[in-house]
Structures are given as structure tokens and as C-alpha cells.
Write a protein that binds this DNA or RNA. Structure first.
Length: 259
DNA sequence: ATGGTAGACCTTCTA
């Protein structure tokens, strides 16, 4: 089973590109982020025609996440628990049915910039809520994958030009520490487990020639529970997609599991 | 030259 995560930066602006990748890569499960539309505006028909079941947690203009799967999605949760006043659509979770069911979450972690505004503590409190929820999910002792745009550069090897990111929320010690704390609950970072080589970037800014200069960062991650990590067989970063027409600034990342 | 691009959408916010 191949499980992908992709921040598409508007599913409607990018629909032909997204569908092209789906047809070429034929993933079994996809976690989308930044769909940038409400549920009613999500182009579900186009994905259903390709054989996917679709669940969304959308929002007008900003954010929005979705899960797509070739097999039915059950036990759907929309929104991260822990703060009923949080109106940002950044989390959806479901169980992918099959011989070995696997629980999958599509995560769009807050960016947090600029540091020094209310956005940064929002990021950190959202990460604390994610860790609290993840702890409960780990207690189920099931195959579990938390995949998405974490908006965290874990280590210096995960950024081409570290000095350009020192003041950025994605590379703050607090952000990186919170990511390590989440991982240390018992998760495996699929990329580090299967590859781990420097330069495994998943995002290149639209500005300042970041893509042609390969000034990227690795911020899209699959975190696997022990029951999922034991079945992990590979990780692929589809970086060529960044060179397509009208690309997202993120590329798809695909984890393979023996399920 | 305090830059540069992209998307939603109504003038500015988010990234």
C-alpha cells in the first residue's frame, strides 16, 4: 500500500496537475493539504471517477485538508481535539479499510510566521494538541500514519540554506523541539528510516529562484506508529512534480507499506 | 531596490 501526502496549494487552481499526478502515481491513499475551499467546492467527482473515496474538512479561502482512498474510509474525525474555539481546518483522520486497517491523518500544521505575533504561539499550542491526541492514538497499538505539511524543518540537513531560515517559525528551536517531542512519543519518520540522505526536500518557495537553485526544505513528513513502521518498505519524494506547469510549492511524498 | 511569486478574492491576507 502506497500512502501519499501533498500540500496542493488550492485543489481547484491545480486540478489538472493534481489529477495528472494521481493517474501517473496511482497511490492507494492520499492526504491533501491546503485545498483552500469549503467541502461543497471540493472537486470530489473528479477523484471518484479515478476510483477514490473522498472525505474533506474544508474552509473558505485558507487551509482545508482531505483524505482520499481506494478502499472505504471509516471512523472519520474532522478537526484536532483540545480547543473548540479553533476554527481553522487543519486536521482530518480516518481508518482506511482493508485486510490490515490503517488509521491515517492528513495534517496541515500552522506556519507560525511571523515569530513575535500571535501566530507563533498558535503553532506551538496546536503542536501540543497534536501530541496529546497522538498519544491517545498510539495507545490503540494500531498501524497509524500521521502525514502532512508539518511546517517544521527538523534538522539542519533538511534545509539547503540554513542561515536563510534562522528567524523563521519553521526552524525555531521551539518548533523543532515540539516536533522531536511528538516523534519521541514513539513515531518513526519514514524518510529518515528509509533514506535519510541530505537534500530530501519537499518544498521550494515560489520566490527568488528557490527551485532552480534547489534552495528547498524538508517539511512534509510521514510519522509512523511502531505497528506501521514495522511494515514500512520505502519512501519516494516526487520532486520532478515541482518542475511541472503551474506547480504547487510542495511535492508529493509517498510511503510504501507491506499491508 | 527592504525585494521576489502564488492563490483567494475585493484589498489584503496567508504562505
Amino acid at each position: 500500500m502506497r500512502i501519499a501526502t501533498w500540500n496542493v496549494n488550492s485543489v481547484n487552481a491545480r486540478l489538472p496537475t493534481v489529477l495528472k499526478w494521481f493517474e501517473e502515481a496511482a497511490p492507494d491513499v492520499v492526504c491533501l493539504q491546503e485545498i483552500k475551499c469549503i467541502d461543497d467546492k471540493f472537486p470530489g467527482d473528479a477523484f471518484e471517477r479515478l476510483g477514490y473515496n473522498v472525505v474533506t474538512h474544508g474552509q473558505k479561502t485558507y487551509n482545508g485538508v482531505a483524505l482520499l482512498s481506494k478502499t472505504p474510509l471509516e471512523d472519520v474525525r474532522r478537526g484536532l481535539p483540545g480547543d473548540d474555539s479553533d476554527e481553522q481546518a487543519r486536521y482530518i483522520e480516518a481508518v482506511v479499510s482493508g485486510p490490515t486497517p490503517v488509521r491515517v491523518a492528513s495534517i496541515y500544521l500552522p506556519n507560525g510566521n511571523p515569530v513575535g505575533t500571535e501566530k507563533f504561539p498558535y503553532k506551538l499550542s496546536w503542536m501540543a494538541r497534536l501530541s496529546a491526541h497522538a498519544r491517545e492514538l498510539l495507545a490503540l497499538e494500531e498501524p497509524l500514519i500521521l502525514a502532512g505539511d508539518y511546517n517544521v524543518i527538523p534538522e539542519t540537513v533538511d534545509v539547503a540554506v540554513p542561515e536563510a531560515w534562522t528567524g523563521d517559525a519553521l526552524f525555531q528551536p521551539q518548533s523543532r523541539g515540539a516536533f522531536r517531542a511528538l516523534k519521541n512519543l514513539g513515531f518513526t519518520d519514514a524518510y529518515m528510516q528509509m533514506d535519510g540522505s541530505p537534500g530530501g526536500y519537499t518544498f521550494w518557495d515560489y520566490q527568488a529562484g528557490a527551485w532552480p537553485r534547489d534552495h528547498g526544505i524538508r517539511i512534509d513528513h510521514h510519522l509512523l506508529s511502531p505497528q506501521a513502521a514495522d511494515r514500512l518498505t520505502g519512501i519516494e519524494i516526487h520532486r520532478e512534480v515541482r518542475g511541472w506547469d503551474k506547480p504547487s510549492d510542495h511535492v508529493p511524498v509517498v510511503a510504501s507499506l507491506a499491508l
